[in-house]
Design a protein around this nucleic acid. Structure first.
Lengths: 341, 341
DNA sequence: CTGTTAGCGCTTTCAG
DNA sequence: CTGAAAGCGCTAACAG
């Protein structure tokens, strides 16, 4: 079934003009008589003409589309980054092709190839927790298609990155727990494959060190972000002879799941154990107790990534800058660490 | 900066073959000598050839892309629908162009035109709360591009729709509140522009009627989903001489916001007032008390919408079926209505 | 100011 | 089995 889309030829025929004149009128080229232009625009409007992006892309070798690859879509984090990214892209009249990977490496590779086939002008990427091979991404650079990483960045590929001050934020988060009087703080960390896991863990460790608290390896568990495991680890923690009185979790979903388990075990938050998350997920404000967390400027992260990408598109790869933008975070203190009256 | 993407010509030149033969080998056409095919495929692999979707689209007048237009991205609802939709689309080797509208009508129109320019083969749409004019969507049908609505459907356009049994679900939700002993149940409804608001409200009203409870217009407030207003309305309810002892909210974010306010006012949930939401948002399990809500099969909704769309793509519009798929929901009873021991 | 021509990368006739 | 040629909708270069 061939759908009928109005073409330039349709307009040209109707107005008895050449294709090129119509094209010029439509694209705002100066060399068109005012009267002709008006006639063309009026008819285009009437016939609901929408230029065919395909043919233009074929000529210009530009699709005016950027790809966004994110690891998951369940928590609000990446959705919100995407909102920012999309807003920024729209400013430059760019579209956005979005793919989420269900935290699956093979899906990420598929998505990358899909982007390739669709000849996106650039991509912004946050890796799945599984991604350890980066060939599918290197292909882009090899072809002069720019990449910008955000949040879960790849340290082995030379490309601009947008991250937050993970180390500092973690440091402050843990320091906050310490200031509320906690002395045995556990850390439910992310998989070591992710740089953010390592940085946050380092922040955690250094905060303890600064305050002369012992580093107890038993209190640090790196896990694969598979939420169903949180229960096991938290029970493990709380079953200890000397259970922790504080918990710093790699992200908010983990922290909230942990709080569920802690409450089931009959422990009070924050009295028995204070909890801090990371990312300020949409849900964290509603949790009970509301979750103390590190607010990441998600919207800005998306915007910044796209801005950096836009600076690379149409530039010679030799001129690409290797900026690493570090965005500031803010510790949001809520009831999971400091109970308000 | 022209990025170098491998083309069929590159391969043809290298192998001293004609373009057509290479093309045939690549597309699995039977009339190619086994040996030739293997050589082509091997080289294509080596040169990282990725077919240019643009040129194919130009010829076939098909982009293998479907558009998804959703009103917002903040709550988890639409994200999850998109996950399902994307999975289903991928099965048929279709890509997905996603646009969210920030609940803004003009953005919806823009997004629709963007889809049009990109010649999507079909779209699935959930309307913004503001959308009352549907011309931007009718254009698609006029051109033989199929539309499927989901969740927030348009009743004025003849198109397949995927919805849930809003009336029944609301009825059961309210009946559940009644069974927990509540007799004065308020309803924080959505904007009347949305059919789901009206249906859920009707379910609410009929449940009260069935149980011989009076319909008090003062206990029904339809609002514009602007979350900041929830506080005002809930305070208004609770300030009444005879405040409600139950609340049925149009959706989970509303319910959770309401619970926050109720708790601030020092009222107990569910003892003083039982609360039921709608949609089983990701956050609702973490809320305190955990929120009783109507679980919507979000993933299935996305999948079903795409399936219906796929059945229309490539079919003569005359053969398009006007199915309305009604998916079943499930009432999930949590602590906001029935406190577990 | 307007028309003509060529060609983007690919598939699809039509000829061998 | 393979090649040559036409053309998808549009823009850009070259002529008027």
């Amino acid at each position: 079934m061939k759908s009928h889309q109005t073409t330039i030829i349709d307009i040209a025929r109707e107005l008895n003009l050449s294709k090129s004149t119509v094209s010029r009128a439509l694209t705002g080229h100066p060399n068109v008589k005012q009267q002709t232009r008006e006639a063309v625009l009026a008819l285009a409007e009437k016939m609901e003409y929408q230029r065919n992006q395909m043919s233009i892309s074929l000529i210009t070798n530009k699709t005016k589309t950027i790809g966004i690859i994110v690891p998951e879509f369940v928590t609000s984090f990446f959705s919100q980054v995407i909102i920012g990214a999309q807003e920024e892209a729209r400013k430059s009249d760019y579209n956005v092709l979005i793919s989420q990977c269900n935290e699956d490496y093979n899906t990420e590779v598929d998505n990358a190839q899909l982007m390739m086939r669709n000849r996106v002008d650039g991509i912004i990427v946050s890796l799945t927790k599984e991604t350890k091979n980066f060939d599918h991404l290197r292909t882009f650079q090899r072809r002069g298609i720019p990449i910008v990483f955000f949040n879960r960045v790849c340290e082995e590929i030379m490309a601009p990155k947008v991250i937050v001050n993970d180390y500092d934020a973690a440091f402050k988060a843990v320091e906050h727990l310490i200031k509320t009087g906690k002395k045995r703080i556990a850390h439910l960390a992310g998989p070591p494959s992710l740089a953010i896991s390592r940085k946050r863990q380092n922040g955690y460790i250094d905060a303890l060190k600064k305050h002369n608290l012992p580093i107890d390896e038993d209190l640090i568990i790196g896990y694969d972000l598979n939420m169903s495991k949180v229960k096991i680890y938290i029970k493990h923690f709380m079953d200890m002879d000397n259970p922790p009185d504080g918990l710093f979790a790699i992200n908010d979903p983990t922290a909230m799941e942990a709080m569920q388990v802690i409450k089931q075990l009959g422990k009070r938050i924050p009295e028995d154990i204070g909890v801090v998350g990371f990312s300020n997920d949409y849900a964290s404000q509603f949790a009970e107790p509301s979750l103390t967390t590190v607010a990441v400027p998600v919207n800005e992260m998306g915007k910044t990534a796209v801005k950096l990408l836009m600076d690379m598109i149409d530039k010679d790869p030799a001129d690409w800058k290797l900026l690493v933008k570090v965005l500031d975070t803010e510790l949001i203190v809520r009831n999971s660490t400091v109970r308000k009256a």
